[in-house]
């Protein structure tokens, strides 16, 4: 079944999808004939959440209202969620003053001569889960609860292998990238995998009609973001990545049960 209408919700990682769709539309070659995007990082929606006395986070009424209206009006066949993601980058991108390593099946250990603590994978996953619960999963739980169509949760792109590229394009990390240095690429890859595992596990356990969208092999080179998907940025992927992912999403979404109809 050909799905027509896509609704994208998210933060900065949503941009590549949005730009890719726009480019496809201009060329008359849109994978998704209709697509609409709700950027949650637009100024009008700031802040997205409020923090309670117990440090718990809650989406603001404005955000939930806008999401509800967006989905009701769009009546999408599928929903793409690319929310947050920097909870992982904040943990992984820069070199921590106290070196550490995390074991991961099939991944090499860092050079022991580098020193530092070896953090058990499950402990790092618990930390990732804590951060994810306050970030991406907070948005996801809400969208999953109100969605009338399958929700495809897209992780942030895999890490960029090149330290030089990151230092040349530190983006929002700015001077901090030079001050702290960039974490070893292998460590960043392991942390990205743990982050993805964590989100996927939460979605599998709690999701109503959500799917964690595993990335296709084409986006990887040695487990990192393939060079052709880089842009002048340390963490985000380019328009070509968005185009590839829109096609991937269409293929995956076409294989899952169709939407049950518009939201009430």
């Amino acid at each position: 079944m050909r799905l027509r209408k896509l609704a994208g919700i998210g933060h900065s990682h949503l941009s590549c999808f949005q730009r890719a769709h726009a480019a496809q539309a201009r060329a008359g070659a849109a994978v998704w004939p209709e697509a609409s995007f709700l950027r949650l990082n637009q100024p009008a929606l700031q802040p997205n959440f409020r923090t309670g006395p117990d440090r718990s986070r809650h989406l603001t009424e404005e955000v939930t209202r806008r999401i509800a209206h967006f989905l009701r009006r769009g009546a999408p066949d599928a929903i793409l969620l690319a929310a947050m993601g920097n909870e992982y980058n904040g943990l992984a991108l820069l070199q921590h003053p106290e070196p550490f390593d995390v074991p991961y099946p099939g991944e090499p250990d860092l050079d022991p001569a580098r020193g530092g603590m070896r953090i058990p994978r499950a402990l790092m996953a618990a930390q990732m889960r804590l951060l994810a619960d306050r970030n991406v999963l907070m948005f996801w739980r809400h969208v999953d609860a109100v969605a009338g169509a399958p929700v495809f949760v897209v992780p942030p792109p895999p890490p960029i292998a090149s330290t030089d590229h990151i230092l040349s394009h530190p983006g929002a990390f700015g001077e901090r990238a030079r001050r702290f240095g960039v974490a070893p690429a292998v460590l960043r890859r392991k942390l990205w995998r743990i982050y993805c595992d964590t989100i996927a596990a939460a979605i599998a356990a709690e999701g109503r009609r959500s799917v964690f969208l595993a990335l296709p092999a084409a986006v990887f080179e040695d487990g990192f973001l393939a060079r052709r998907f880089w842009q002048g940025d340390p963490t985000h992927a380019n328009e070509a990545y968005g185009a590839l992912m829109l096609g991937h999403l269409a293929a995956v979404a076409g294989a899952v049960p169709a939407a049950e109809g518009a939201l009430p």
């Binding site: 769709h21 539309a25 849109a30 004939p33 609409s36 995007f37 806008r66």
Partner: peptide
Amino acid sequence: GGGGGRLGARTAA
């Protein structure tokens, strides 16, 4: 007005 901006194929360009 609520709702996010719509960027469908017809309107994208």
